[in-house]
Write a protein that binds this DNA or RNA. Structure first.
Length: 544
RNA sequence: GCGCCUGUAGCGCAACGGAUAGCGCAUCAGCCUCCGAAGCUGGUGGUGCAGGUUCAAUUCCUGCCAGGCGCACCA
């Protein structure tokens, strides 16, 4: 049994290189998954790299190394796990694992459940993931919905990988947009009272403003308090939308609270001490060019009011003060120009720019039957998260938002997402889960037999086990890319392996030994599928 | 003009710098007396253009072409 066979093989190869008196930097010795399982279970290209360095044909170098590796394996505890090492292609050294290794791993998953899949790469590192953070001036849009899905799922994955994750929503509950919101409600209230009004174009046009105006009238809210009243009202709606979408935040960080705390002034005085603030043209500037920004940025305008950057500098500084050592921000593509100045600010306070990861979540275009739906936030004409939830449901919409790379544009067709058919990948995965549950329901529970997994010798059975064991690597890819997207691809592949197995081999009625083993096999698949779907935040139906 | 994202099959998308570029839809041909056919099997069909780096480029670099988004003392 090996905790991590990839590491064991790496150590073995390193030792073999030393024995052959061949030198290669440790970071060059990479034992990887091959692109295709016909090339074994692990592969390394060291012979190709060495061949160039020492001017020998790569295949010869590989053959020499394989001979040494085979002898090493025979003398090590790997001899039961690795069945074959050979040179293939232009000089790749490929490792084929023994079925016994896979049975051991499957057994572990069955007995330990999803805990067997858990990793501790994070080692409890405190990470703050801030996402959505939409202004409380209207319902959440499609862009926010995608951010919510990506952020929540990424948080799930990081936490599964042993990070100590906190989800945070930065609440822009004061400032210009709240004033405009208040004035919008005020005008609508007067309009409802019969007054003729001129409604400015840059005010909030949506019909929901009328609803808030009616409510404000009923509660006799004063004009001056309408902004806060409306923001509170809308915030409740946002919270409910997110909650129905399966996204719950640990912290709602109020900008108003930040402003009152004096932390903004505090961070300014610190920046001033360090010489990164200066006055010019009546405004106060942050010297962000000192850290690679294109130009310096105004933090206090010549009229004395702050720009948006001012509280943001203090806010990010406060994140570190609260003990987080890794900050992840999910922003819309319209904020990408903002990355440099925020990174500059954290650097000015002595933090490494790498400790802040900004993930730009590209926009999603909503389609209906192949036709894009035009949107305008200003006119209040946009598809909201609420509408998507009502029409498509949380499961399918979460999956759809996650099934493309976060950095890529996403086309989201409402009609396809609604379809409960093969076109819809959500159901393909959920169907595999339901199918397993169905078999388990039909299984004769009186069937008792000493479990021997080694009867699982069919190609589809071994492929299925191998696919199950890939989850760990997939989650690491998600971590490295800061993108939950690979998990959606993986779950479709795992489902495919299961469906192929199911089609060719019966589980029930195959004689006690084989039936028992296959039941355990599909229980294992269920554990992995279920774990993956849970990380995505998608339901795992027992029946469909 | 500057920055970011994207160009792969009719459409939507995959491919840590690797081996014969995969999958879904569509289309054509098959598979249910048997655990769920929301499934499986097979056929058709492809890397925007030009250079460069590399043993190896869809992937990295440069230029061009095309599409999307953003470039405030707005938030």
């Amino acid at each position: 049994m090996h905790k991590n066979i990839q590491e064991d093989i790496t150590a073995l190869v390193t030792a073999a290189l030393a024995k052959a008196k061949l030198r290669l930097a440790p970071e060059e010795i990479i034992i990887d998954f091959p692109t295709d399982n016909r090339f074994g279970d692990f592969t390394t290209n060291i012979a190709l790299k060495l061949g160039k360095l020492i001017r020998r044909p790569p295949r010869d170098v590989a053959a020499e190394l394989v001979e040494i590796i085979q002898r090493e394996i025979a003398e090590s505890e790997l001899k039961d796990s690795v069945s074959l090492v050979k040179v293939e292609g232009s000089g790749f050294i490929n490792f084929y694992l023994a079925p016994g290794y896979f049975y051991d791993q499957l057994g572990k998953i069955i007995t330990e459940g999803k805990e067997a899949l858990r990793l501790d790469t994070g080692k409890g590192k405190k990470v703050l993931i801030e996402f959505v953070s939409a202004n409380p001036t209207g319902s959440l849009s499609v862009a926010h919905a995608r951010q919510a899905a990506v952020g929540d799922c990424l948080a799930n994955i990081l936490s599964f990988l042993g990070f100590n994750v906190q989800r945070e929503y930065y609440l822009n509950d004061e400032g210009n947009q709240i004033n405009i919101l208040g004035r919008s409600v005020e005008l609508r209230r007067r309009e409802l009272a019969g007054e003729r009004i001129e409604f400015p174009e840059n005010y909030y046009q949506g019909d929901y403003i009328y609803d808030i105006a009616k409510e404000a009238d009923k509660q006799k809210i004063k004009d001056a308090e309408l902004g806060d009243f409306a923001a509170d009202h809308i915030l409740k709606i946002i919270k409910q939308e997110l909650s129905d979408f399966g996204v719950d935040f640990d912290c709602w960080y109020s900008q108003k609270g930040l402003a009152k705390s004096g932390k903004i002034e505090e961070s300014f005085s610190q920046l001033k001490e360090k010489g990164f603030l200066y006055e010019q043209d009546g405004a106060t500037w942050f010297k962000s060019t000192a850290f690679g920004d294109d130009k310096d940025r105004v933090v206090i305008k010549s009229d004395g009011s702050q720009t948006y950057l001012a509280p943001d500098i203090a806010y990010h500084q406060d994140k570190y003060k609260r003990g987080f050592s890794w900050l992840i921000n999910l922003w819309g593509p319209d904020h990408h120009g903002y990355i440099n100045r925020i990174k500059a600010s954290i650097e000015a306070f002595g933090h490494s720019p790498e400790s802040l990861s900004v993930i730009i979540v590209q926009l999603a275009t909503i389609f209906r039957n192949g036709t894009p739906i035009q949107m305008s936030t200003r006119r209040g004409q946009y598809i909201t998260l609420r509408e998507i939830l009502d029409e498509v449901g949380a499961d399918a919409s979460r999956f759809f938002f996650l099934m493309r790379r976060t950095s890529s544009h996403l086309d989201f067709d409402l009609e396809v997402a609604k379809k409960q058919s093969a076109e819809n990948p959500v159901y393909y995965v959920q169907y595999a889960h339901a199918r397993i549950c169905s078999i388990l329901r039909s299984a004769d529970i009186r069937l008792k037999e000493d479990l021997d997994l080694s009867v699982l010798a069919e190609k589809e059975e071994l492929d299925l086990i191998k696919k199950m064991l890939e989850l760990e690597a997939v989650l690491n890819v998600c971590l490295i890319n800061r993108d939950p997207y690979p998990l959606t691809v993986y779950l479709q592949e795992l489902s495919e392996s299961f469906h192929k197995f199911y089609d060719l081999h019966r589980v029930l009625g195959q004689g006690a030994a084989l039936t028992c083993a296959r039941l355990e096999l599909i229980k294992g698949v269920k554990i992995v599928l279920s774990c993956g779907l849970e990380l995505l935040g998608v339901a795992r139906p027992e029946k469909m």
